[in-house]
Amino acid sequence: MARKAKAAPQGDARVRMVRYFLFHPAAHTPRPLKFGTMRMLRHWTIHRAWLLFKRAERIERERELETQYNKIRDACEELAKTDTRLFRNAISKKDVGTFPIEMRIPTDTPPKKGWNYGWRRH
């Protein structure tokens, strides 16, 4: 080992740098987290609170979806009782169309030009 280290560095300096920072020496590896009793207790409490929070969020979302689904089902039943042709058209998978590419996903800040009010069909 020592003999190797003494040898003059070989190859491209950039490659050597990449190698050095990819394979960190032991002194650079992160220390394991060591928590004291009270800190561990705090950590556990925070974790439990987070799980509870996510659970409440999930239940709320599921309830909302369930309400919406029930509303759709009721509407379909009413439609089937009222008009078979309309019902048949409603549940058919024909002509459902494709997903529009103009749809934008939510961003952290609003678009620079704001909403596109000037859109014209023709």
Binding site: Q68, I91, W119, R121
Partner: peptide
């Protein structure tokens, strides 16, 4: 008016009112 770029989601009604 027609000057809105809209997309109708499916053929199924999402609710009804009598």
């Amino acid at each position: 008016g027609v000057n809105m770029n809209t997309w109708f989601v499916g053929n199924v009604p999402i609710g009804h009112l009598v």
